[in-house]
Simulated scan of single mutants.
Amino acid sequence: MTMPSLATIAKLVALVLLIGLALSTPGFLSRPSLTALANAMSLVGCVALAMTFVTIGGNIMSFSLGATASVAGIVFMAMLGHGFLAAALAAVLAGTVITALQGSIIGALRANPIIVSLAAYALLIGLTQIIVGPKMDAPNLDYQFLKGRLGGIPVSFLVFAALTVLAQLIVTFTRFGHELMLVGSNARAAEAAGIHVSRVTVIAYALAGVLSGIGGILIAARFGSADMQTARGFEYTAIAAVLIGGTAIGGGRGSMVQSFLGMAAIVVINALVLLQGFSMEFQRLTVGLAVLAVVILQGLGRRN
């Protein structure tokens, strides 16, 4: 009988402790609290799913996905005068183009993905501020349904859950998903096996852009406006969700469902910290310690 790994045991212990703390915290299971958790998950969760495509493909992470979501939100608000569908398509297209271009540079030139994403982040911030200005509002109320509920569940959360299922199906059952795992595990071996690594990288980044674009729409609809600060810092939370969920930082292993659960763990931790009376700084400390623990456990797992 195979003994469970140290990482598996640590995850189970952490899960039991988290559930126990949640059940023992007054107000955590109240309807307003659970609704707030669902909304929080959906807003950052789309960026976390986007980050998962990047990480599984062996490109570690992207620091421009939050900015991409912000740009998509701005495009969505700017295009609402042409109708909701046109605005949504324009926003998703903007996100896709932004990230696909990064994927093309990384795939074709073997450029460092982190450096490329940092450059993209700076360019997006600068160009958007020059072209658009500080903020974009829209009087059009076509997006209000995204702030509503269906069967008591926030629509934004249902969108996030549906995207998780769709993205997981892509990773699990498509040729691209299989190739993405192989490229993330060993890009040189994948190329030697006849896989077009550059093409896989571009597709992964393009899908990340689609998800970031949808996330930008949800964020803009939630706040009724959009600017480059709207999704600021989302990429860091997304990275934390991906790693806490168990996706390998070196690529080649992970899933969208894991990132969904990682996102759930983060919002639960943040909610418990606030309900226990601690500050937001303590939230960041707790999540940071969780990510550090995951990275250490992954490192120990590779050594063993």
Rank of each mutant, 00 (worst) to 15 (best):
Q168I: 02
R175D: 06
F176A: 07
F176K: 02
G177M: 11
L180P: 06
V183G: 09
G184H: 08
N186K: 07
A187H: 06
A189M: 10
A190L: 07
A190T: 02
G194Y: 04
H196F: 12
V197F: 04
S198K: 13
S198F: 05
R199L: 14
V200K: 10
T201S: 01
I203A: 09
A204V: 07
A206R: 04
L207E: 06
L207K: 05
S212M: 01
G213R: 09
I214C: 03
I217D: 03
R222M: 06
R222T: 07
G224A: 03
G224D: 00
D227G: 05
D227E: 07
A231R: 05
A231L: 11
R232F: 11
T237C: 00
T237D: 12
I239F: 12
V242E: 11
I244Y: 02
G246I: 10
T247K: 12
A248V: 02
G254Q: 08
V257M: 11
Q258S: 15
S259H: 08
F260E: 07
L261D: 01
I266W: 02
I266S: 03
A271S: 15
L272W: 07
L272G: 08
L272K: 05
L272F: 06
G277K: 03
S279R: 09
M280N: 09
Q283W: 00
R284D: 13
T286C: 12
V287G: 04
G288F: 04
L289A: 15
L289V: 14
A290K: 07
A290W: 04
V291I: 12
L292G: 13
V295T: 05
Q298W: 04
Q298G: 09
